[in-house]
Amino acid sequence: MFSEECVRAALNDLVQYHEFEIRVIQYSEEHFGNFVIELVKRDSFKVRFIRDRGQTWCELGCGSDWMQLEDVLEVVGASFEYNQNEDYCQNIKLISSTIYHEFKLLDKALDVNNRADTITKAGQIKQKRVEELLTEFK
């Protein structure tokens, strides 16, 4: 059962201390209980949580570009692991806490001066993943 109350509580640190604003909570009861939750912050990056067929993850956005949180963290030299199959609310809380603690690093990597470089590096990580997949099935 989806609980907006639980989601809002899990996002509290980002909303209260980093002034993110919850812009979208779009829950689809008819489609596996999937959801999209999007947060925005003035002059900073966007955050979106996605739940697809019971799996939850997070992406960071700049303009129309979205990158997986783990890729951006890798670019800035941090790492983060969690089980995307766990309870969505627990995962949102865990991910929010990571963003909260790494906010300065992430904000710098995605500011106007460094954004292009970060997007390029995250793009290289994505490309490597695709090449690995295609090699596996060559």
């Binding site: 697809d52 067929r53 799996q55 995307q84 994505k126 490309q127 993943r129 695709v130 997949l133």
Partner: peptide, 10 residues
């Protein structure tokens, strides 16, 4: 494909 996430149903 480059936006595909590891370990997902997709």
């Amino acid at each position: 494909l480059k936006e595909m996430r590891k370990g997902t149903f997709f």
